[in-house]
């Protein structure tokens, strides 16, 4: 039982980490908290549903769904944010709110306000047993996928020129441009990565719940936002640490709180968040950013 809880905690933490990382990548480059990040996740969920309805084999459907998240993020930047280049952060925030609301309405009216069942393959809901332990296949896959995504992303950011340029741009974007590296390439890549991560998170989320609804992305992205702030807004290692921390605390509280106080779980978690921020206002692992007058 305890082993299963640990696995659940890491698996939920992994989903939060992927989402928080997507928010942090965009924030570190553009200074924008993309409130429409949750809708990228929802959109990938519907894309998975549609691909399965069209009869695509499951792995292919997942590929289509994740790509849809990534493409939607790039399109969002092109259509909504690029024309606002140079606008104040407040205008960007409002724009992202608008995009988020618009997409929700489209999902509600264009598809349905009610949850749609997604036919996940049967083996996903199975479990392994080792002696006394039973561990769910779904959460285990979720952990492996999150870990792989984190390793791949880290490799991209460390090894590739564009990844290195993104780390540099988080510090000092103007100087990256002075090196001849186009701003639009860096920004588009940031959105592409955030969309990929949102798409992956959506797959893991849907795998646990087997349904999609227009508000699907809201709660996990809210949690991811909290995780990103706790970790240190704009800091990528911080986002990952914050995501895992939040996921683990949530699951452990869920498992250990007496029934009478269980409904206050989120309040307890948020109090913890406030405590962390009082002690470390810059978050657990603060972002490096050049301060200029």
């Amino acid at each position: 039982m305890f082993a299963q809880q640990i696995i659940n905690a890491i698996s939920l933490g992994g989903v939060y980490a992927l989402l928080a990382l997507g928010l942090a990548i965009v924030f570190s480059i553009v200074g924008l908290i993309n409130f429409a990040h949750g809708e990228l996740m929802t959109l990938s969920g519907y894309a998975l549903l549609a691909a399965l309805v069209f009869g695509l084999p499951f792995p292919l459907a997942v590929l289509v769904a994740v790509s849809c998240g990534a493409l939607a993020a790039v399109a969002m930047e092109r259509i909504a944010f690029r024309p606002m280049r140079g606008a104040s952060v407040t205008s960007l925030l409002l724009t992202s709110f608008a995009v988020s609301s618009l997409l929700k309405v489209v999902f509600q009216n264009g598809i349905s306000a009610r949850p749609q069942a997604v036919a996940m393959p049967g083996w996903m809901t199975g479990a392994f047993s080792f002696g006394d332990f039973t561990i769910g296949v779904g959460p285990s896959i979720s952990i492996v996928v999150s870990a792989l995504a984190l390793i791949l992303l880290e490799t991209f950011l460390r090894r590739s020129v564009t990844g290195t340029a993104m780390r540099a741009a988080a510090e000092d974007f103007d100087v990256v441009r002075l090196m001849g590296i186009p701003a639009s390439r860096i920004i588009a890549t940031a959105f592409l990565l955030s969309g990929l991560l949102a798409g992956l998170a959506a797959m893991l989320w849907v795998a646990q719940r087997a349904s999609v609804d227009p508000l699907m992305g809201f709660t996990p992205v809210l949690k991811a936002f909290i995780a990103a702030v706790v970790g240190g807004l704009g800091s990528l290692p911080g986002a990952v640490a914050g995501g895992f921390l939040l996921g683990i605390i949530e699951v452990l509280l869920q498992a250990t709180l007496p029934a009478a106080i269980a409904p206050y779980r989120d309040a307890i978690v948020l109090s913890g968040v406030i405590a962390v921020l009082l002690l470390r206002p810059q978050g657990l692992i603060p972002a490096v950013r050049v301060q200029r007058s």
Binding site: T164, R167, A168, E171, D172, V175, M179, G180, V290
Partner: peptide
Amino acid sequence: VALVPEGRRIFASLTVADNLRLGGAVH
């Protein structure tokens, strides 16, 4: 045309190798 800005503005969190790499990346 290359500008070496006031205050140097090297990428502090990147290695010397990566700073150089970015300088020559697209040229």
